[in-house]
């Protein structure tokens, strides 16, 4: 990594991950919450690639592909569930999808 030290990548990755966590906890629309999860997964991918480059291995690069495949499967499934919720309730606000007693 000519000129750019490892720590910068890790800090960027941590910032992205934290943004994802904040988005998950703060946003009220199911779709935005779902996008926040994707942001977290991509932050992890950045860490994997940075570590892999630092360690001079290909393993980390390979892991990102596994993560992408899983994220894609998760997206397909998540959107289907979100669609079913919308058909059932007519809303995508997290607070309004809460019919069970606490």
């Amino acid at each position: 990594m000519t000129g750019v030290p490892l720590s910068w990548f890790l800090i960027l990755s941590a910032v992205l991950f934290s943004l994802g966590v904040a988005g998950f906890l703060i946003r009220r629309s199911v779709l935005t919450v779902f996008m926040s999860i994707e942001l977290m997964l991509n932050a992890v991918n950045l860490s994997f690639v940075a570590f892999s480059y630092q360690l001079k291995q290909v393993n980390g690069h390979l892991f990102t592909f596994f993560v992408m495949v899983v994220a894609a499967a998760e997206a397909a499934l998540g959107l289907a569930i979100i669609l079913a919720v919308f058909r059932n309730r007519g809303t995508l606000q997290v607070d309004e999808v809460n019919s069970m007693k606490n």
Binding site: V30, V97, S99
Partner: peptide
């Protein structure tokens, strides 16, 4: 059931 699926998934 669908609400459970959404919560579990997210």
């Amino acid at each position: 059931a669908i609400e459970a699926a959404l919560k579990y998934f997210l």
